[in-house]
Design a protein around this nucleic acid. Sequence first.
RNA 1: GGACAUUUAGCUCAGUUGGUUAGAGCGCACCGUUCACAUCGGUGAGGUCGCAGGUUCGAAUCCUGCAAUGUCCACCA
Length: 880
Amino acid sequence: MADFTELPKAYEAAAVEGDIYAAWEKSGAFNPDHAKGEPFAIIMPPPNVTGVLHLGHALENSLMDTMARFQRMRGKRVLLLPGTDHAAIATQAKVEKMLMEQGMKNPRQELGREQLVEKIRTFAEESKATIINQIRTVGTSADWSRLAYTLDDQRNIAVKELFVRMYKDGLIYRGYRVVNWSVKGQSTCSDDEIEHVERPSKLYTFKYAKDFPITISTTRPETKLGDTAVAVHPSDARYQQYIGKVFTVDVGACRVLEIKVIADEAVEPGFGTGALGVTPAHSAIDFAMYEKQKAKGEPIGIIPVIGPDGKMTADAGAGYVGLSVEQAREKFVTWLKTEGLLEKEEDIVQSVGTSDRYGDVIESIPMTQWWLDMNKVIPKRDKTLRELMREAVTVGAHGNAPVRITPDRFTKLYLDRVENLRDWCLSRQLWWGHRIPVWYRGEEMYVGTDVPLGEGWEQDPDSLDTWFSSGSWTFTTLGWPEKTQDLKTFHPTAWMTMGYEILYLWMMRMVLMSTYALEEIPFKDAYIHGILRDEHGKKFSKSAGNGIDPIEVIHQYGSDALRISLLFGISPGNDSRYYTEKIESGRNFTNKLWNISRFILTTIGSDDVASTTKTLADEWILSRMSEVAASVTQKLETFQFSAAGEELRDFTWGDLADWYLEIAKVEKGKKIILTELLQTILKLWHPFMPFVTEHIWGLARFDGKLIVAPWPTGPSDVGAHGNAPSPEFERLRLLVTDMRRLRQEQGIEAAKKVEFIVIDHVGAIHELPLQELVGQNEAWIMRLINGSCTSNKIAMPDGYVVAQSGSATIGLNLAGAVDLEKEKAKAEKELEEIEKYISSTEAKLGNVEFTAKAPEKVVQGMKDKLAEAQAKREALKKRL
RNA sequence: GGACAUUUAGCUCAGUUGGUUAGAGCGCACCGUUCACAUCGGUGAGGUCGCAGGUUCGAAUCCUGCAAUGUCCACCA
């Protein structure tokens, strides 16, 4: 037996964690190929390779890893598949920004495609290495042999295959439509990449010309140079006479507009003038009208007046070409004023679409791009992609149950979003990403996974939206499009976690891709976590300067401490705060567990006599243990990480350390029980705190590896103590607390020799080492009167100060120096409270409605409480 | 404009189908240190569960309305 007395008094996390992780990895425990049992796969949400991990990632990893380790110990064949995301626009924007800070004016022009991509790749590889290292540091039990990257060759094959299939199914099309355009980024972006920022703006109300009959309003006067129609509501009496008419108006600077008055339901008659200047080229809603008119056979024109460079085009007129949007606006408004056409100019607050990566205002510009159709029926499937996304969370499909989203309120949000999805613009004018698998030669176009045969083919210069590859992440990581064993074993995956901020961006796309390509719903459960904020509730961000490096925290406090401090006190879908006191409390508990273990190990090392009979305390702690094990299991099964951990902490610290171990010091002979208790709590804690538990398990030389030790779930695993915790013990525990309080209330010095009398009618007072528990061993004298005595015959002698503990009466000898008046008043107050409680409880129990309708358990519980309260009342009465 | 969330002890938050006299951590007050742990032990103070109605034998929990805060969505030009 090793000598445990030499172990350090405080747990030194930094000294052991690295070696422990390396040993796990080496043992192959992370790799499911070495395991049996029912498959349980968690695919890691791949962190962006834009930098380093933050605390939010640490939270996500803690959730994933706790679930993975729990399931692994339960005998499942667990795959936690790690990976990183190339994050197309985010990474390219970041590297371009860095290059510009280093003095480059236009990195794309100066470096060209190949060199810039190389720069980005170098950066990405560096952050990838950092990130992977960080994931190891937090202890995530990921299978590194299956490490994936959204931009590696394997994923490239899959992405191309997916694109080609969708194209062949007619879901992907090339179309000239209004896109979201970032001038700064020189690329399209999807609706989801736009952040709406409120800012002050001006609303101008004006007429195109003196002889034009309708007044319109706009916040973007410069775009009016591209107007081709004015839309009014079809039933608006004011404008009936004009519908269908075409007006030619001179807007100065060599521009003449042909404006047709059209009717459209989308126009609100009550808003502004009830008429809307239609700019098909620079507004999504106006473009929709343009298409509607075209379909009706009454086409209107489309005139782009803003170019991709953010400057006015030649079509804006000779006086405007080359001007910036702002300059053009000023010029046009000035012209309106001089012509007397401007009727009103109001200050308003407007929500402006802004690029979340490049930060500039998004322009709507018509362009030819690649799109994914949400409304087209998939051949041989009889359903649209939108329908596939819908049924995946409602009725399920292909024999898969619907995804269970925790908390389920997000299901409704998801569905609302699915209904409002527009076609997805897939192409980006970025260089960092999967290149679109399309080649052109003159008028010819080829869509395929490989370069077409023959001379002169040029590949589409654009790349795919980053979510195209991350959307297919659950199955491309498992080897699709090959029919691999992994795919068969682990897909659909079991459990997935993500922050609510990417529920739309990511989850919908994963569902879309998986239900389309595999006819499988990609996961059974989606657990949505909140955002981690700083102590003031602010989001962590670089610009706010409140970022915290999880690795530094781990270095100082240990990975386990960080994990439990992130996991405790949270609830799914809600934000949580991080602050120093929390991590300290995590560290303190880790240390507590360390010292509990140290005590048990030294005790079982020296205490070689094992008692064969169980004491009251033994029975109590073992039944509590099995009760807690069952409850923690149930909570983890339902993803209640916080509740499970806190229950376990309360048991470990409160029941085990503060009570049982103190009793064990006196009772002795507990080698077997203490060993069993230590093993069980180490197992139960392992998913939450893998390092310290593994470290202790190793020091103790317990059998096997903790990481794959069988999970304790109930009585049979902790030694057949299935009975409910003894109420007798709980009563005695209360008695001890009450005795301690009485001593403190009387201000008795710790070393003073005093005498207690405890009068009780039932119970096993002698079954607890009361003297030791209440105070200093030698200094106390205690007379216990219980069991056979009848209450009438026993009275507390004079000179004792008295307290009530349940039905027991405690007397503390003050050698006559008792304030009888005060004592009486105290008892009276207590009696008053208990009377109140008794009468309200009696009233409840007397209510037939209650006894008839409430569950038996509730009624019985109340009766028991009442009986106890009545006993206490009798005892109190005797003292008055 | 729409939707969602939050409001419980000084602070940060739990509270799972409505059911004992509402909990935790931190903080606070008092007592305690050779005995696993001061990163500790003991004891205690502290809450009309945002407000107003309603349903129910019973409401922090369900319903309605209101208020404050936060988040997301939206093509009000």
